[in-house]
């Protein structure tokens, strides 16, 4: 017992540096955001107690409420599709020789978006989607000239256009995670499926997916957080436009605080956003629990 106690105190000493930074830069600002969220405050002058009014405003103000709805749509693009696509791709290339040229190249190409700064990604895609951009040029060349448009200025296509970038970004990360997870799966399980007469699809549903549960949980969590807290891509590509069609909570918090000088309101929306994020993470962990 004595030995155990010593090692736990030592462990705490090792944890202190990281923990104190975490408390100072994550937990403390979060707590002060919660306290500001109950005030009417312009960020400079005196703050006036406002009770829960800022919170009810989050759901009454269409601008703020719609931003939350948009982020829920983006979960599909940033999280659900990349995780699903990543699983399928990982399963498909799991048989490829890891050292083969195609195997290496496909991993590099699919993972590349992950290492680019999001601002650069946003600028590049903004050019691709522009009226004279590559996408419209391609459509012209294949005879679909009638479908060309300024994609990011179109009410129906702006949000999916940003979402597509999310798929492009997230799939590589998911693939990499699942690919490394697959290496750990006991090959006998696949042989057992084959012996029972199951094909590749059966192997996917009965072996790959259940075995990758921890990886799926992790990938879903981080992509979900990226979907809900997104700011950079939208800020660069559309700044919430057209007409608020791509406004997301991260951008709206920034706008409320620094453009409209409504600090308390910005904090309330930020707190609601963090609660929604928690809720989703709890949900993922409940659904994808280890057996």
């Amino acid at each position: 017992m004595k030995k155990g106690r010593n090692s736990s105190s030592e462990a705490i000493l090792f944890v202190i540096p990281a923990l104190s930074l975490y408390l100072l830069f994550v937990i403390a600002p979060w707590i002060s955001a919660i306290s500001f969220s109950f005030f009417n405050w312009d960020g400079i002058g005196s703050a006036v107690w406002n009770g829960f009014n800022n919170y009810s405003e989050v759901f009454r103000d269409p601008e703020q409420f719609n931003s939350i709805k948009h982020s829920l749509v983006l979960i599909g693009f940033f999280s659900v599709v990349p995780v699903t696509l990543g699983l399928v791709l990982a399963h498909l290339i799991s048989n490829l020789e890891t050292t083969s040229l195609i195997g290496r190249m496909s991993r590099v190409v699919i993972f590349l978006p992950q290492v680019l700064p999001l601002i650069a990604v946003g600028i590049a895609w903004k050019l691709i989607y522009s009226s004279q951009g590559v996408l419209n040029q391609f459509l012209e060349n294949v005879g679909l000239g009638a479908s060309t448009r300024g994609w990011l200025g179109d009410f129906n296509f702006a949000l999916p256009a940003i979402g597509f970038v999310g798929i492009w970004l997230g799939t590589g990360l998911c693939l990499l995670l699942f690919n490394s997870g697959i290496q750990k799966i006991d090959q006998h399980l696949y042989e057992a499926v084959q012996l029972d007469g199951g094909g590749r699809i059966r192997a996917f549903t009965s072996v790959t997916v259940p075995s990758l549960r921890p990886e799926i949980r992790f990938a879903s969590t981080i992509t979900m957080i990226a979907a809900l807290s997104g700011f950079d891509l939208v800020y660069v590509m559309t700044n919430g436009g057209p007409g608020g069609a791509t406004l997301v909570p991260g951008l709206e918090v920034f706008r409320l605080a620094f453009s409209y000088n409504r600090f308390g309101q910005a904090c309330a929306l930020a707190v609601v956003l963090s609660l929604i994020t928690f809720l989703f993470i709890l949900l993922i962990n409940r659904v994808l629990k280890d057996n």
Binding site: E63, F155, P242, G243, G244, R255, S259, Y260
Partner: peptide, 20 residues
């Protein structure tokens, strides 16, 4: 107002986009 620039942006975009 501090939000008018944004309001004019949002509403003119919505008008031109056939949404308002």
């Amino acid at each position: 107002t501090s939000s008018m620039n944004q309001t004019l942006t949002t509403t003119t975009q919505a008008l031109l986009g056939g949404q308002m």
